[in-house]
């Protein structure tokens, strides 16, 4: 149904970014990689959105450049993508800030370890003896020590 060649490449790009991004979010353990994957997936979704208005021989939707209205591409997806990009920037900035604080508090960027430490903290705050967590690192591998300077920056600052 889809013509081979260039259009196929556009879609492959958008979908490739989406797939790389979503796989990264779901499968990565490193926090920084997850945030990067989020940015990639957002780029893929944006590309898919802007492709929605594309057609062969289209021109930019700007009047007074000697182009006929019929050749101009749909301006709406372009405006939408502008909005979506800014939203993505806001979310990524917050994600990075939270990652900095999480690293300060626990000294690791491994999502699974962060989650274990968090659950232990929540249980401790609730006065429940920490249950032997099922997905704790096998063999009681110790979590890397937090540098003293970091430790003072975390917690209830």
């Amino acid at each position: 149904m889809m013509p081979a060649g260039l259009p196929f490449l556009f879609y492959a790009g958008a979908i490739g970014l989406l797939v790389i991004g979503i796989s990264g979010i779901v499968l990565s353990r490193n926090l920084f990689r997850i945030i990067l994957a989020l940015a990639l997936a957002e780029a893929g979704a944006n590309l898919l959105l802007v492709l929605a208005g594309w057609h062969w021989g289209g021109s930019a939707p700007i009047l007074g450049q000697g182009k006929a209205l019929e050749t101009m591409v749909d301006p709406v997806p372009q405006a939408l993508v502008l909005t979506a990009i800014v939203i993505g920037v806001g979310i990524q900035a917050l994600a990075l800030a939270l990652a900095v604080r999480a690293y300060r508090a626990y000294g690791t960027l491994d999502m699974r370890r962060l989650r274990n430490r968090m659950n232990r903290d929540i249980a401790a705050a609730a006065g429940i003896p920490a249950e032997s967590s099922r997905d704790a690192p096998a063999g009681g591998r110790p979590t890397p020590p937090v540098p003293a300077a970091h430790r003072s920056g975390g917690g209830r600052a």
Binding site: P61, I62, M72, P75, V76, Q78, A79, L82, T83
Partner: peptide
């Protein structure tokens, strides 16, 4: 610039 018209006007 019609994209501007959409960004600030229509949407």
């Amino acid at each position: 610039n019609i994209v501007t018209a959409v960004v600030l006007g229509y949407r």
